[in-house]
Simulated scan of single mutants.
Amino acid sequence: MFKAETFVSSIKNLLSHPQIQHQQWRSIVKVRLKWVKNRSLDHVIDTETDLKAACLLKDAIKRSPTGFLTAKSFADWQKLLGLTVPVLRFLRRYPTLFEEFPHPRYANLPCFRLTGTALLLDSQEQSINKAHESDTVERLSRVLMMMRSRTAPLQSLHALKWDLGLPDNFEKVLIPRYPDHFSFVKAPTGVSALRLAGWHEEFAVSALERCNEGGEMGDEY
């Protein structure tokens, strides 16, 4: 397999060809495609969305000083959680995880706290995060290595927390344990950011390259 630099260079040379440049300036052709549903894929996407929203809500309830959230506090979280239904309806869909009860002072205000099952699952999640912490550090390092400044705002990383497999409050429970990998800085805009403390050459090799070097992909690739 040729290296990524060679591939990029080949694409640039191809696009610089006069014939290709001429074709790029031609008008866009309208193409009508038939929309085909994939029920298996749709099911996976729906399940993944629900799982992500449930985990984010679980973490939010854990962070709450009162140990619960009111319906008013998450009324506008629907888009943030990627849900197609109101958050209140979503929470009521999973009574095994979220226990509903009336507010101590306002009886008409629904509140939600974690059930024993949710707390048990959270404990298991923390154990898994701890067991695979080195993988998490590697993923986060790779993300920062892709940045030109090797720095990313914490707010942006929080938005990617689920996708990167970062634990909740990772800036407090994970980052301080790895000062040789990360450091907190102030971005030019004044927001808090995370910077890569040093370049790690072992992380600069992609999984695809590792498989190819190990001969796992065979000669057919």
Score class of each variant (00 low, 15 high):
residue 151 T to L: 00
residue 47 T to C: 10
residue 47 T to L: 11
residue 119 L to H: 09
residue 143 V to F: 03
residue 53 A to I: 03
residue 11 I to A: 13
residue 137 V to N: 06
residue 29 V to Q: 14
residue 57 L to H: 09
residue 139 R to D: 01
residue 100 E to Y: 04
residue 6 T to A: 14
residue 135 D to E: 15
residue 141 S to C: 14
residue 48 E to V: 08
residue 157 L to A: 04
residue 97 L to F: 14
residue 106 Y to L: 07
residue 93 R to S: 13
residue 44 V to D: 06
residue 71 A to L: 02
residue 102 P to A: 04
residue 208 L to F: 14
residue 11 I to L: 15
residue 1 M to C: 10
residue 35 W to V: 14
residue 84 T to E: 13
residue 219 D to I: 05
residue 180 D to R: 11
residue 192 S to A: 15
residue 23 Q to T: 01
residue 148 R to S: 13
residue 160 L to W: 04
residue 10 S to E: 10
residue 170 F to L: 03
residue 58 K to M: 14
residue 22 H to N: 09
residue 137 V to Q: 06
residue 166 L to F: 11
residue 157 L to N: 07
residue 65 P to W: 07
residue 163 D to M: 07
residue 140 L to N: 04
residue 15 L to H: 09
residue 89 R to C: 06
residue 23 Q to C: 09
residue 28 I to F: 07
residue 136 T to D: 06
residue 143 V to Y: 03
residue 171 E to D: 15
residue 206 S to F: 04
residue 181 H to A: 03
residue 88 L to R: 15
residue 96 T to I: 07
residue 185 V to T: 12
residue 157 L to C: 10
residue 25 W to V: 13
residue 171 E to Y: 05
residue 142 R to W: 01
residue 33 L to V: 09
residue 101 F to C: 00
residue 44 V to Y: 12
residue 139 R to N: 12
residue 147 M to C: 15
residue 71 A to M: 00
residue 63 R to S: 12
residue 85 V to Q: 14
residue 164 L to Y: 11
residue 106 Y to P: 00
residue 3 K to Q: 09
residue 34 K to V: 11
residue 109 L to K: 05
residue 182 F to Y: 11
residue 184 F to W: 05
residue 71 A to C: 04
residue 205 V to G: 00
residue 55 C to W: 15
residue 73 S to H: 07
